[in-house]
Design a protein around this nucleic acid. Sequence first.
DNA 1: GAAGTGATGTTTTTT
DNA 2: ACATCACTTC
Length: 759
Amino acid sequence: MDNSNYLSELNEVQRGAVTTTKGPVLIVAGPGSGKTRVLTYRIAHLLNTGVSPRNILSLTFTNKAAREMKERISKVAGNRGFSVWAGTFHSIFARILRVEAEKIGYPSSFTIYDADDSKSLIRSIIKQLNLNKEHYRVNAVRTRISSAKSQLITPKLYAQREDLLMEDAKARMPHLNKIYTTYTLRCKQSGAMDFDDLLYRFFELLQKDKETLDKYRERFQHVLVDEFQDTNQLQYAIIKKLVYYKDSPMNICAVGDDAQSIYAFRGATIQNILDFEKEFKPHGIKVFKLEQNYRSTEHIVKIANQVIQQNRNQIQKEIWSDKGEGQKVKIIAANSDNEEGKRIADTIIEQKNRYHLSNTDIAVLYRTNAQSRIIEEYLRRFNIPYRVFGGLSFYQRKEVKDAISYLRLVVNPNDDEALKRVINYPKRGIGNTTIDKIEAVAIELGQSMWDSLLMVDVGPRAKNAISSFRRIILKAAEKNKSEDAFDVASFILKKSGLYDLLKGDNTIEGMNRMENFNALLDGIQSFVNDGSEFAEVGAEDASLASYLQNIALLTDFDTKDSDGNYVTLMTVHAAKGLEFKSVFVTGLEENLFPSFMAKDNPEAIDEERRLFYVAITRAEQYLTLSYADNRYQFGKARHNAPSRFLDEVPENHVEMPTRRAVSAGRRATVGARSGISGSFKRPVPISRNQTLMADPSTFKASPAAAIQVGMKVLHLKFGKGKVLAIDGREPNRVATIFFDQIPNPERKIMLKFAKLQII
DNA sequence: GAAGTGATGTTTTTT
DNA sequence: ACATCACTTC
């Protein structure tokens, strides 16, 4: 294959980042700066200079990124690309743990608990410990446990941390540590690891077993980490364990952008980037800053730079583009959330016609999933095909999870969460009372529920039901020793009665469930046949255990097929790493974007601002920002001021409204306000890059109607100016004014909300 | 054991 | 608006 000139496709900085393969490297990569290209070419370059694919470890956060990377490496360096250890942190470590788990007291067929399983277990522990669930909210507890783990704080260490105990006491959860301890114990008894455990237990393995540590240090001669700003302490600790030791070649390459760190709320810390640079400095770290943006036109890039400047802590860099000025950003000011939806749909139609965009060129982004509903409604009405991303993954649907729980139980009968899910589904006469008794025995004896099944004191009917349930699972487990995943799955799903239960349901939803159920079986069949669709998570064999491990790590994004011509709807978080010709960023209101949760916390506001930065930098050519004065939130009509972020968008990059605001299709039931639309300016706050050109104490705005061509006027921000022309009709008259004290002196200003004083 | 009622708490979440 | 969950009632 011809790959001799891949280096010439890179700019100078990129080439440096690709060819500096010895020693530590930090690549600070702005949005659209060709980061993925650099990473893949770097790996291809390693392969071309004689490094074996087996010695390269490339860690990403999403399966999609991993898959893309492998494909792109292979394009440049051939099929060797597929032998590189490229995957998500979780999938790579899970794969290793499946080989090594016994060294830390886990079965190799360990179960992976997803978020639902974790929550369910926590719920049961709160009950077991007789704690007040008003104070101990499951989500809060889970977040707390997860954050402890990602900071390497074991239950034992937790007990010594006065600060954490204090925080818990303050939050009226003094026994949180007890829950954490029990949770850890119960997971272990069940042979289960949650998502954090996949990282933590891998760390533990490297920590405890010197031989294993040496083995993987030897194996991973070159380590690359994508989206480094999103790593947490635990991930950093693992990386250091692998590359930071005496006589290490320290071939570590971290790629990231502090400005795009949007997962701090989950324990990610940009401190890792800063620490990384400091810790590897004595070892000759080379830093490359990719600042040229190949994605967006200049207006968009400049807005992004301006916005992110408002944040206090950041690695200084200035993104630039040579794609030409492009279009200014458009702002949709709507009266209600309904009007916002309508005008977005309107604008989409308009853009499709005017710029010949297809649906796939367009994305509508929002801060919270709840916002999608109204937008969907109007897209449907306008017959614009769309797809919402980020819902339940296929594997999280109830009927699919039920079926999978059976499979999990066959592979690992100690999996208590799976057992609780299916022991009485379909109904077989094992009611809640009986299940509670089984769980009580399990807790009492410190063993799994499965091991406790025959020890519980219940009536003969329940006893019989338990025995026959047990027999089915045992029979399937026996088969599992010799048969492949598909045969075992068909057997247990049939024998359990699940198949008949679904078949008997002839409602629309029921038939839908049956379809999903069949799709699951088809998936297992194709996994057995070639495993190809799971290649990115590293399927090792055709066993049921291997199948389960792989699907546990798949998300919504991995199960939706990407063909079809539709507009993309997703949260800003989900859009990271993607790009579209036209992007709508919606719901730009205080208490929504930025979120009300961030209100009183400057650091959280900075994170929201980074999120806004991520949102606008998804756009290649057309960027539209929108907000609504009134919106239903939590079932109540609420008024929110336009987002502070809108004020941070410099006006000279904003397109002035040229047409009259479309009135809402249906006047919202929420109290209609002034009817002013088009105003994206709040009373101008004095932010640090807005110097006032007039004294506000003596400034007195003249009525808009009085402004005439030829007048000399004073503007708070732009200073003295002369009115050159007035266009448009009331109430949308636009004045062209020449302000001689500012750069770009000729400005178009809408009279109805400009504050001008005649002098 | 099922089905219905009322109170409650809601961000984002790659894995 | 909406889902979830404890608690009631049949």
